[in-house]
Design a protein around this nucleic acid. Structure first.
Lengths: 251, 251
DNA sequence: CAGAAAGAGATTTTCGAAAATCTTGACACG
DNA sequence: CGTGTCAAGATTTTCGAAAATCTCTTTCTG
């Protein structure tokens, strides 16, 4: 045993979404996180130009960390960068939303299959508790449909539930892609809050999926999941028409 | 028609892998590209520390563009960043390689299904020509198995072939993930050149997949594709043992 | 001798200004 | 009237040095 190389903290996998883990210790990292949230929650408008002077003031940082943050978020697609022309908040595009949704459906179906085959005990436990947390948030939201914070809490738990579903698959790369896609999905979903009627009840769908997963019934679980996504897609299509009518009428 | 908003250059989708499109106009972008290549082609060792002074000299740039480049590549997972401790070339890890391979198998299967259903004429044409280019490179390589440039040319065309296979699916996000994963895969494959016997003939496998795709035979195409990946996975497992024996013997 | 504290040196991170590039609008020309 | 050129202003990109953080060795203490 010559030289014991100091063991790395994380096991392996892509260097992962910095956002959901812990708060970064550098300015750049923290700004990147804030930027992500501001975009997902529409505190920055889709298509808005992100000028350095403005952002510098807004986040109270110099150009270097700002620039680094912007690149981090750009790599994820939430902002788009053009050389020598600066950065722009990614536009809202329905086609992209459907693309993201379809990919998620495929990815999660794949994940759930692996999880059902290989998921260990703690996967089941986590999944169960994630569902209950989601359910609680769900009833809170339906009690007061316009409370922003409640809604945000529900969003977080909804993400956590789907994440828990996938987690058992044991594929860091898949979970990484999950995070990236979910950020976009959440952004789109929040966009629609402005236009849509609220709170489509989906608790029982989630419950059914979870039960199938815990029963280790691969086909049933995947079918329910696919149906879950297809329903979302249908709703999206309807909203699309609605929104397009609304914006057309406004001009 | 009040104000015609100037039409954006790219249609939609994630702001995509800057690497394969065109050379960036900023220093940071160019350095990022170079960095990617240097890592994929093992001009920078796995696990190697990337210090600013060294890299500054190597690429002849200041800290700002270097830092930005590093973040771009880190977002892709080819380098890992740790706050206040700098950047490191992502280590080689067999488990991760299998993960990447499995995900690719799933993603490409999904893509090929969509492509077969929705792919237009130009998809078929591109696929056919990509295959021929691959085949030519293949025979060049088998004629001289140790020529680095030939090998690199083959790699590029191999990527192009798989890309062409997926391209018809019309999902920018999927193609984005494809690029990211393929970079890692290529890196691993090149890593094994050092240890493995060369040039496993796979032309006929590629040809069979392509034919099935052009016949629009979904099931056949997907099955062949899966088999293609499984074969790779088996080879990888064997190599893994080999390499581990080799490195164990060396210490 | 083990373990904590402190300081020097190395390295990363951030800042502010200089350089490079893009945009806009005025002006000249066909 | 449309088109191309040029300069001024706005904005992004890059540089080099200052500030902050980490690492490693030494020293001190129990």
């Amino acid at each position: 045993m010559r030289n014991t190389p100091k063991l790395p903290t994380r096991k392996w996998g892509p260097s992962l979404h910095p956002s959901r883990n812990e708060t970064p210790k550098t300015l750049a990292g923290r700004v990147a996180q804030q930027l992500r949230l501001d975009i997902i929650r529409h505190h920055l408008e889709p298509g808005e130009r992100l000028q350095f002077e403005k952002l510098s003031k807004r986040y109270d940082v110099g150009t270097s960390p700002l620039r680094e943050a912007l690149f981090q978020v750009a790599a994820q697609g939430l902002v788009v960068a053009e050389d020598h022309k600066g950065f722009v908040v990614a536009p809202i595009q329905f086609d992209e939303m459907l693309d993201v949704s379809n990919l998620r459906a495929n990815l999660e179906a794949y994940a759930i299959r692996s999880a059902i085959r290989e998921g260990r005990e703690d996967w089941e436990v986590d999944l169960l508790s994630a569902f209950h947390r989601l359910k609680l948030a769900g009833s809170a939201v339906s009690a007061d449909q316009d409370d922003e914070d409640l809604r945000t809490e529900w969003e977080d738990r909804h993400r956590a539930f789907h994440y828990a579903l996938c987690k058992g698959c044991g594929s860091p790369w898949l979970l990484h892609f999950f995070d990236e896609l979910y950020d976009h999905m959440e952004r789109y979903r929040r966009y629609f809050w402005k236009y849509a009627e609220r709170a489509v009840a989906t608790d029982h769908e989630h419950e059914a999926i979870m039960k199938a997963a815990l029963d280790r019934d691969e086909e049933r679980a995947v079918n329910l999941l696919q149906a879950h996504f297809q329903k979302q897609a249908r709703l999206t299509m309807n909203l699309r028409k609605k929104v397009e009518r609304a914006t057309a009428a406004a001009s």
